[in-house]
Design a protein around this nucleic acid. Structure first.
Lengths: 329, 329
DNA sequence: TGGGGCCTTGATAGCGCTTGCAACACCTAA
DNA sequence: TTAGGTGTTGCAAGCGCTATCAAGGCCCCA
């Protein structure tokens, strides 16, 4: 079942069938109707593969994220797909667990499909990834973290500023002995940047050096519990703890409840992510709301614009973040 | 940069270059080395698009899930990609929010790429989806829910049995007035099936008809809080509540804490999903652990086998589930 | 009435690869 | 020595579209 068959039934040439599907306006209404009708009757659907090869442009967008487990990237992906899908683009998704080598492989694999665009997470990449991306003949978007000199386009916000904002908030609440708990900071560079911003702000405020608990594993309530316990059992427990993730903070909430430690009276807690439960926990959780969905829509809009107008260039889109002050600190 | 260029440099024909990449064993070691070396030097990578068109078989697996927000499908997707990626297959992911019409569109879009296989979630689909899938010239896998007569292959477990298991557990704990809280049950048919199984088991045990709270929105702590409040404020509060999702149960835990309702003394709680926090909450949460990752690996293994041996047919793979009894009930 | 646009349509040359088929060399068994 | 394998390699015909270019019809204005 090929265009040729449809052409025969409709009594036109293959070229006309192709145009009826690809650029409807360039075909007379009468013929277009006949073509689409014949196609419908035959149950014909054009082969995207052949079309992509012929036009040297696949309607695919390669998207590389660190993980598929957190709703963070899930929201971004959903927002992205929500706009890209209706425009006829498919997402090719890959995840790399914050491993730059795996990112490299994923980027290479995406590029092999001659995608219409490629979207990666973060602003730090391996040399090979960087050069592959630079050579790519399509728009390249780095999302979630900003960078002064992105490869092409960057959409996100400053993790460092987010970390600073949390510190400022806690300090404004009168806390002086601060601590930061980060999950997988060795690999998750954005979590590390939040930690840096946090510590930096504390120093600038003239407070004692914040204690930093860098967890090996990725963020989890278990990790939050362990870190909270270590912190509280140390000689001088902190007056406020910022976590690199709401789940970590949730763990602390559980452990505090077990120990009878009062939040925020005994110690203030802040998370990151504004996951749904943050607004409903007991007590409700102070956190930072990153623009998860907005990132997805902004990336999609940017790409759609680029597809329309090949002349358009890259840009840096700062979507900011929001500090959500709640009961925990 | 095409195979032709590599062929010229290596002093062989295009066919040999193609074979050196595609079926290395059919080329003499010497030539293979020369070809790969030349390719490397030129920075050549074969065009997957052209290859797919020529072989009428794209190394793509279309995967359609309800949502990208929950770690449920995230784990499955990660496990799937973990096996499929190394084998050279890319995932094309789409999500439909439990909307059968959107599923239809996603399946059609996937099929347009002549994928090597297509994986959908659940056992219930629209007529059009069903016929499109039946016509598909590739393996079709339905995952997460089993069905006696799958389109081709089914990998998952019985949601109904999962619901029954929770009821039996609660009943064994001496509870008689049961309730079930389900999120988005009108659309999420697996959640609905769990609810049915639950009610069914209660009836069989001769207990009073369980109250069923069907929430409109998708599962969230907010929904859990509201449902818990309604249930506890009713004339005869239940002695045990099963939720269709751990987040719903987490909301109930928060609300119970606020109200001073003791869990499990005053009321037993059970969730579903065994999300990471379930093992660490205060109190820890009784829940059902579905084989999220196992589903992904089993689907991938099945597919890989099918790709190897086109003769192989569909099968039904029941991976079961596990009831994890913890402190909450 | 004729010439210059403009709009549709068709013919056709690829897009970059895979693969059946034929050719050839080299070997083994009779 | 010869017939028949076996293992490599090249040739060339597509895979199913898109896009370029030319042709034809039509309208408008001079």
């Amino acid at each position: 079942m090929r265009m040729e068959d449809v052409a025969a039934v409709a009594g036109v040439s293959v070229a006309t069938v192709s145009r009826a599907f690809g650029k409807p306006d360039s075909v007379s209404p009468e013929l277009r109707r006949r073509v689409l009708e014949s196609a419908e009757r035959l149950g014909f659907r054009p082969s995207v593969l052949a079309g992509s090869l012929a036009s040297a442009r696949a309607r695919i967008v390669g998207v590389v994220v660190p993980s598929l487990l957190t709703s963070f990237f899930g929201m971004t992906l959903e927002a992205l797909a929500g706009r890209l899908g209706p425009a006829g683009y498919q997402m090719m998704v890959g995840h790399h667990e914050y491993d730059l080598e795996r990112e490299e492989a994923l980027v290479a694999a995406s590029l092999d499909w001659s995608p219409a665009a490629i979207v990666v997470t973060g602003a730090t990449h391996s040399r090979a990834t960087l050069s592959a991306l630079a050579r790519a003949e399509c728009p390249v978007v780095e999302m979630w973290e900003l960078s002064e000199r992105p490869i092409d386009t960057a959409v996100g916000f400053s993790s460092r500023e987010a970390g600073r904002a949390v510190a400022h908030h806690l300090i404004a609440g009168g806390r002086r002995r601060l601590a930061f708990v980060g999950g997988a900071m060795g690999r998750d560079l954005r979590a590390a940047a939040r930690g840096q911003g946090f510590v930096e702000a504390a120093r600038e405020a003239g407070l004692p050096e914040p204690r930093v608990e860098a967890l090996e594993e990725r963020s989890s309530t278990a990790g939050g519990i362990a870190a909270f316990a270590r912190l509280m059992d140390s000689g001088e427990p902190p007056e406020a703890i910022a976590f690199s993730n709401d789940f970590l903070a949730l763990g602390a909430l559980f452990e505090a409840q077990r120990r009878g430690v009062r939040i925020p009276e005994d110690v203030a807690l802040a998370g990151y992510g504004d996951l749904e439960f943050a607004a409903n926990s007991t007590p409700t959780l102070t956190t930072v709301r990153p623009p998860h969905r907005a990132i997805g829509t902004a990336v999609a809009d940017h790409l759609l614009r680029r597809f329309e107008d090949p002349e358009a260039g890259g840009e840096i889109i700062d979507l900011g973040f929001e500090l959500v002050a709640r009961a925990s600190g």
